[in-house]
Design a protein around this nucleic acid. Structure first.
Lengths: 99, 99
DNA sequence: GTGACTTGATACGGATCGTGTCAATGCCTA
DNA sequence: TAGGCATTGACACGATCCGTATCAAGTCAC
């Protein structure tokens, strides 16, 4: 489906990049979100040549982006609240870059 | 000063990670900003084990962060302007992650 | 129950990255 | 101005990382 080698998926899981659920017999089961996540990882690794350590950081950046996005388009949220949450996410981003 | 091998600095320049100015005799000259940049790169590579390809992306993320930071603390700027510039930076960040 | 697949563990080839070496050039001082 | 030393660029050598192949053992579906 994603043309990924089974061993690659296992290694990604060992590194904590994905977290598939398991069936009773301990077979891996990937949700739609995780498949999308794998697609994202594949782009970073195959097309951009990025390290798995770098992928891990960029995944966290992407997670922050996903939380910021709705904040900016929610029109019935008090500007103060938006501003405060935005500051929190930005400082989180800075922290993970070690700034 | 940063305990980096000269060849490492040359390779980083070939990859476009740093851009030192040159003296008349073509010797490399690093500004304070570039030294800080090198320190940042060193952390990503040595401590986090990140690829140079990943470093390149994270450098761009850091650049966006550096532009966002003053926006959030400038009280003289109209909220509309802040919001618009913020949206631009965020979409830039999304674009560079391929989202 | 039988055949096909998945599981985990280990090993191998290719690519990346830091470092060492080389001759040639540039810089500084006596 | 001549001599000693560092820097320049190019190439090559280990170490490490990553995807993939292989293996026996366990699991699934028919």
């Amino acid at each position: 489906m994603l043309r990924m080698h089974p061993q690659t998926l296992r290694k990604y899981e060992r590194l904590g990049l994905v977290r598939p659920s398991r069936t009773i017999g301990s077979m891996r089961l990937y949700s739609r979100d995780e498949i999308e996540r794998l697609r994202f990882i594949k782009r970073l690794v195959d097309d951009m040549g990025i390290n798995l350590a770098g992928v891990q950081q960029l995944l966290e950046v992407a997670a922050v982006m996903r939380r910021i996005q709705p904040l900016m388009h929610d029109d019935h949220l008090a500007p103060d609240i938006v501003r405060r949450r935005l500051l929190r996410e930005i400082s989180k981003l800075n922290g993970l870059l070690g700034l």
